[in-house]
Every structure is written in C-alpha cells, then in structure tokens.
C-alpha cells in the first residue's frame, strides 16, 4: 500500500519536472531557485534538528553495555563494547559509523523443528547497507569535481580508481554499479520480506526511490544521454559564487537529476535521514560505562516525596522493639 503511494509520488514529481522544463520552460526555477532553497532548507533544518536534540538533556547515564565492564584489575575489560575511556567511546562510535558493527551481529531466527529455534548469521543487510553507504560517499566525493576548482588530486585519483572497471564495461563507475545493486537490494527486501514490508512506511519507500531516481538518472547521463559537463560545472561554480544563471544546453534528464537531489536534501532534515547526525548523539552508544565512578548530573533532578526512616519507625516501632531490633526513639 505504502509502496504505491511512494511510486505515484515519485512519478508525479517527475511529471512536475517534465511539465516545468519541457512545457513551461521554468529553467530558473529548477536550476536556481529550487537548489538554493533546498540547500538552505538542508543546512538550516539540519542545524535546527540537531539543536532541538541538544535542547533536551540526557538525564541518566544509559549506555547499552555490550562487553565486560572495567572492575577488578585482573578481569580484562572491553574498552570498545563497554568503553571506560573517551578513546573507547570514539572507537565504538567509529566502528559503528564506518563499519556498521551492530548490523554485523545480525542473525536470523528460524524455527528448525517444532519448538526448536535456529539462529543463522545474516550478513546480507550489513553488506547491503555497507555497499550503499560507502558507494554513496564515493559518489559524493567524486561529484566534488563539479564544485571545486582546481579539482583536488584526491578527487581525480578517486575517480580513476572508481572507473577501473571501464576495462570491463563502457564508462561505468564501480560505485555506480554497486549503489544501483545495493538500492535494488534494499528496495526489494522492503517489498519481499514480509516482516520488513510490514514495518515499512510510504516515506521509507519514498526515500529509497528518490535516491534510486538520482542514481539512475546519473547513470543514464553518464552512459547514454550525455550532458555537457563543462556547462554543468560552470553553472555550479556560478551558483557557488552567487551569480546564478541556469546552465546552457543541458537535457531534461539533468533537471530530473537535479530536482531529485534538491528534493532529497530538502527532505533530509524532515525525515529519518537525520539518522546521520543522530548516531553521534545516541546516548546508548556515546557514553562511557563508568557510571559508578563518575557521577552523572541530571539537570532537572527534582525532589520527590520519600518515606523517611522516621515515618517507618513510627509505624513499626513496637514490633521492632519486641524482637529486639534497635530503634532510634524509645
């Protein structure tokens, strides 16, 4: 159900660009206004959302501990899964962010025989997520050649390494290939696995489809419907130095690509895509497991009504005296 909402939404948006560009010729809208607005929304929205999180305190010390605590000196503590130093926390977060370590632990439960469970290692989701995020990063870095002058040699080298596959296929980047496969996997698992399908919302499909739209339009521009890249870069450079002008001689496909990118980054702060900054703030992952050693302060720690010893003794003084338990007041 949600899937069809998302697909029709995407088609509607493509239609919007087609009408806008081919029909009315709103080049400035798509090439100047929307991208600027999207970037503004992205930066402002991103910061706003992070500040919003920052405005709530972390009242309690709640790391999810996943390893041996630091206690007696002769018991080997696990500084990554149960970090007791800031270095440990950094390592834990870095492993999580760079290698998606939690997903690597993933396992599937199966019923092997009646009332017998079998746990199967399942690295597919990890592979798909790694493939997707890393190729996305590579693609992002590759696109820096449109944004930077002179192009840093790192970008050139990255591009050359990424295109080593040109030996095998005409003009295709490895990262493009991988991201398309990864997106297909991530999309299909949402459609095929009943459990994942059940939890998916239209917005989940929508984000995937938007990224798929960006990737596919990009790949198509690279492979078949070529675009004058110099014009594109000139346009980007002009935008960056705030002398906007629509690019000359680029095709509709480019506008679709651009519109979807704008859409994605504008939608970013409104959506689950905020998991990117969110992971850094996750209190279960970014705290040290030293809570018995370092007192954590709760800024709103308000006084509560307690049952004092005096009240307690008042109620039980006689029986206590009878059995010989010491009391404060005779």
């Amino acid at each position: 159900m949600g899937l069809w909402y998302a697909i029709s939404g995407i088609l509607l948006l493509i239609f919007f660009v087609v009408i806008g560009i081919e029909g009315i010729g709103l080049y400035s809208l798509f090439a100047i206004f929307i991208p600027y607005a999207a970037i503004l929304l992205f930066v402002v929205g991103f910061i706003y959302r992070v500040l919003k999180w920052a405005s709530s305190p972390v009242p309690f010390h709640i790391p999810t501990v996943s390893g041996q605590q630091k206690s007696l000196p002769w018991i080997k503590a696990d500084n990554i899964n149960s970090p007791y130093t800031t270095g440990g926390v950094v390592k834990r977060l870095a492993l999580e962010i760079l290698l998606f370590r939690s997903l690597l632990k993933n396992e599937k439960v199966e019923i092997d025989a009646p009332h017998r469970l079998l746990f199967r290692t399942s690295v597919l989701l990890w592979l798909g997520a790694m493939a997707f995020h890393w190729s996305l990063l590579v693609i992002l870095l590759r696109h820096l050649r449109f944004f930077l002058e002179p192009v840093p040699s790192v970008v050139v080298i990255l591009q050359r390494v990424d295109s080593i596959f040109q030996n095998l296929l005409p003009i295709l980047y490895i990262s493009d290939l991988i991201i398309v496969i990864a997106l297909a996997y991530l999309f299909l698992r949402r459609v095929i696995y009943p459990q994942v399908k059940y939890i998916s919302l239209p917005s989940d499909y929508f984000v995937l489809l938007t990224i798929a739209g960006i990737a596919l339009s990009g790949v198509l521009m690279r492979l078949i419907f070529k675009v004058d890249l110099v014009q594109v870069k000139e346009w980007v450079m002009a935008m960056l130095s705030f002398r906007p002008m629509p690019p000359k001689g680029v095709s509709l496909l480019f506008y679709i690509h651009l519109f979807f990118v704008s859409l994605l980054i504008a939608y970013f702060p409104l959506s689950k895509l905020m998991h990117m900054p969110g992971i850094f703030l996750s209190p279960t992952k970014n705290m040290r497991n030293t809570s018995r050693n370092d007192r954590h302060i709760n800024p709103w720690n308000h006084p509560v009504k307690v049952h004092t010893y005096e009240e307690y003794e008042e109620e039980f003084r006689n029986p206590m005296k009878e059995v010989g338990l010491p009391v404060e007041k005779e």
Binding site: K108, A113, R116, L118, F119, R120, T121, V123
Partner: peptide
C-alpha cells in the same frame, strides 16, 4: 568469536 560466528553461518550440529 565474532569472526567465527559470522563464518559458521549458525552451525549448531543439528541433524538436518
């Protein structure tokens, strides 16, 4: 252990 766990593919010595 994590390394072997992934490679063992959930082997539990069951009959099947």
């Amino acid at each position: 252990e994590w390394f072997y766990r992934i490679l063992s593919l959930g082997w539990r010595n069951t009959e099947s």
